Computed example of a mutant assay.
Amino acid sequence: MSNTVIHAHGLIKAFGPTRALAGIDLDIAVGESVAIMGASGSGKTTLLHVLAGITRPDAGQVVYTPPSGGPVDVSALGESARSRLRRESFGFVFQQGLLMPELTAVENVALAAMITGVSRAEATRRAAGWLAALGLQGMEDRRIGELSGGQAQRVAIARSQVTGAGVVFADEPTGALDSVTSSEVMDALLWSTTGQGRTLVVVTHDPQVASRCSRVIAVRDGRVQNSAVAA
Rank of each mutant, 00 (worst) to 15 (best):
R125C: 06
I36K: 03
F90G: 14
M114H: 09
V63Q: 00
R154L: 01
G31R: 01
A218K: 14
P66Y: 07
H205F: 08
L111E: 13
S160P: 04
A188W: 11
V106H: 08
M186E: 09
L134A: 14
L189M: 14
A76H: 02
S179Q: 12
G91F: 11
R87L: 15
G195E: 05
I12G: 08
S42K: 00
A14S: 15
K44C: 04
Q225Y: 08
L77N: 08
G10L: 02
L200R: 11
D171G: 06
A170S: 07
G149H: 05
S214P: 10
A29D: 09
H7C: 15
A176I: 03
D171Q: 04
S68Y: 02
A165T: 04
A8Y: 04
R215M: 11
G69P: 12
V34E: 00
A39Y: 02
A113V: 13
G23K: 01
R142Y: 12
T116P: 12
A76P: 06
A112N: 07
I157R: 03
T124V: 07
T18C: 09
G164E: 03
R86D: 01
K44S: 09
L136H: 12
D187L: 08
G164W: 00
T181W: 00
S148M: 04
P66A: 08
G16R: 06
V167P: 03
G91I: 09
D58E: 09
V106T: 14
R56H: 08
D206Q: 07
L26K: 03
V74N: 03
C213S: 14
L98R: 13
L189N: 11
S211I: 09
E79L: 11
R56I: 05
V167E: 00
S42R: 00
S211N: 15
E146T: 12
V106K: 07
V216G: 11
A188I: 14
Q96E: 14
E172V: 10
V202E: 09
G16H: 06
L21D: 11
A176R: 01
